[in-house]
Nucleic acid binder design. Structure first.
Lengths: 254, 254
DNA sequence: CGCCACTTTGAATTAGCTCAAATTCCGTGG
DNA sequence: CCACGGAATTTGAGCTAATTCAAAGTGGCG
C-alpha cells in the first residue's frame, strides 16, 4: 500500500478543464462541488493520495468509513466465495465508495484505484452525527445511494438486453455521460483498463471487446488516438447512442 | 388500479409458517419485524392491499413515497427510453421499494405486484423527519439501501459469470435465501412468474429457462409439485449451490 | 367443451467463445 | 540510442452454448 495521507490544507479541488458546457452540465458539476464543500465544512475529512493499483478497501474488511472521490478513477470489484470476480462499477470524481458495507458491517467488494487521485475518508458514525445537524448533507447522502441503485439497474438492463457490440458502445456512452455530468470534456476517454477488465465488466471476453472496438472504429463511431489504443476519441456522443439503438431494431424500414 | 386502502388497525403481521429454523434465521426474521415495528411507531403508515398485477408506481411518476412490503411479492421493472425493459428485482416481505426515485425526484422503474399483499406507504419527507428523532430508524433505512446495492451487484456477478443453467439455479438459490432470511419455509418456491419473465430477469430466452428447469429436475436438484409447473420443491438447497459450483469448474479431477 | 396462454421439446442457426498466431507497445538495461 | 522481453492487443478459424423458429403438449377458466 503506497498511499499516503495528505493534510486537509491541500488544494481544495483539482483543476477542471472547462470547455463550453450546457447549463445543466454546469449545474451537475456544481452539485458535486456543493457536496464536497458541505463535507469539508462538516467533517474536514482526511485526504489521501492514491496511485493506480492502490487498494482502498477489500471485501471482508470491517466497515467504518465511506469514501468520496475528489479526483482519480476507481474500479469496484465484486468477489464471490468461489473465486468468481467482476468489475461491478467504475467510480469518478464526486462518487461515494463503500455503501455496500453498511448493511453487513463489512465491505462486499474491493475498491482499487485505476489512476492517481485523491480520496476523502468519511467516518460513517461521524457522518451520521453531522447529518443530524445538517439535513442537506443527509439529502446528499441519500441521493448518492439512490443514484447508485439506479445506475446498477441500468447496468443490469444493458447486460441483459444488448448484444456485445452494443454493450461496449453503451459502456462508452455511460462513461461519456459520467464525464459530461462532471463538466469534463466529452470528446475523449482515457480507458485506464485493459480489454480483459472491460470484458470482465461487461460480461464478455477480451477478444470480443477488441473486435467490438475495432468495428466501432471502422464505423467511425469512435476513433483511436495516440500510440496505445486506450485513448478513445468520440467526435459525437450521439453516434454511440445511435449505434446502440441500431443494434436493437433490425432494419424494419423495408 | 384495484388496490384499496386498509386502515392501520388491520392485522399487525401476516401469519408466518414457522418450522424449525436456525437462530440466525430467526434473528433475521426479527430484524424485519423490528423495522416494521419501528415504522409503525414512528409513522403509523397507511396500509394498502394489492393484488397481482397492481402497479404501485411507474417509471416517471413523481417521487414522494418509499414503500415497505408487509406481505406479498413485487417485481421491479426497469424501462429504457427505447422500449427495452427488464425485471431488475424481486421484492419480498420487509423489502423497501422506491429508493431509485430519491435522486431524480422520479421513479426509474415500475413496481408491479405479483401476488396479493400489503404495502405500507412511507412518505419520504415524514420519514426523514422521523429519523431525526430516531437514529435507529435511519440506521435501518441505510441498511436497506446498502443491502439493495450489494444485492444488485450480486445479480450482476451472476449475470456475467454464470452459464444459463447455473444462472437459473442461482436464481432459485437466491430466492430460497430470501425466504430463509425471513423465516419462511425453504423447501418450496411458488414462482409467480412466467418462464418469459424469469428469462427476462436472467437475460435469457423463455425456452432456455424451460430447458434449464427441466435439466435441474432431471438431475434431482429441484422437482415440480402440483399440476402446473410453477411450484418448485427443493429438497436440499445445498444441491442448488453445488450445481452452480459444478458448472464453473470443468471436471479437473483427472 | 373449447379457447387461450403458457410450457415443453426438437431442429437449425448464430453470436460469442476458445484456441492460436501475429503484431504493437512499453519499460529496462546495455 | 537501440535492442530485448513481457504484456496487451488484434485478427483469424473453428466450436459451442444459447437463440430462433416451429410444433406439440398442458392447464386454467369461462
Amino acid at each position: 500500500m503506497t498511499a499516503t495521507v495528505v493534510p486537509a490544507s491541500a488544494s481544495r479541488a483539482p483543476i477542471l478543464p472547462c470547455a463550453a458546457v450546457s447549463d445543466d452540465v454546469r449545474a451537475a458539476g456544481e452539485h458535486i462541488a456543493d457536496t464536497l464543500r458541505r463535507l469539508q465544512e462538516a467533517l474536514a475529512p482526511p485526504r489521501r493520495l492514491v496511485h493506480a493499483g492502490d487498494v482502498l478497501y477489500q471485501a471482508g474488511d470491517r466497515f467504518r468509513n465511506l469514501y468520496v472521490l475528489n479526483s482519480g478513477l476507481f474500479k469496484i470489484v465484486n468477489l464471490a466465495p468461489d473465486g468468481r470476480e467482476q468489475v461491478v462499477g467504475i467510480k469518478f470524481r464526486g462518487d461515494w465508495l463503500g455503501f455496500d458495507g453498511i448493511a453487513e458491517g463489512r465491505y462486499g467488494c474491493d475498491a482499487v484505484a485505476m489512476d492517481t487521485g485523491e480520496v476523502w475518508t468519511i467516518g460513517y458514525e461521524a457522518l451520521l452525527a453531522a447529518c443530524a445537524a445538517r439535513p442537506t448533507l443527509l439529502v446528499k447522502l441519500h441521493e448518492a445511494m439512490s443514484r447508485e441503485i439506479a445506475h446498477d439497474r441500468g447496468s443490469l438492463l444493458s447486460m441483459c438486453t444488448l448484444p456485445a457490440d452494443a454493450r461496449v458502445a453503451d459502456f462508452l456512452r455511460s462513461w461519456i455521460d459520467s464525464l459530461a455530468s462532471r463538466g469534463l470534456r466529452t470528446d475523449q476517454i482515457s480507458l485506464r483498463m485493459t480489454r480483459a477488465e472491460i470484458g470482465n465488466h461487461l460480461g464478455m471476453t477480451l477478444e470480443t471487446v477488441s473486435r467490438a472496438l475495432s468495428r466501432l472504429a471502422r464505423d467511425k463511431v469512435i476513433e483511436f488516438a495516440g500510440k496505445g489504443r486506450r485513448e478513445v476519441h468520440i467526435a459525437d456522443p450521439e453516434r454511440l447512442s445511435a449505434f446502440v439503438q441500431g443494434s436493437l431494431a433490425p432494419p424494419v424500414l423495408q
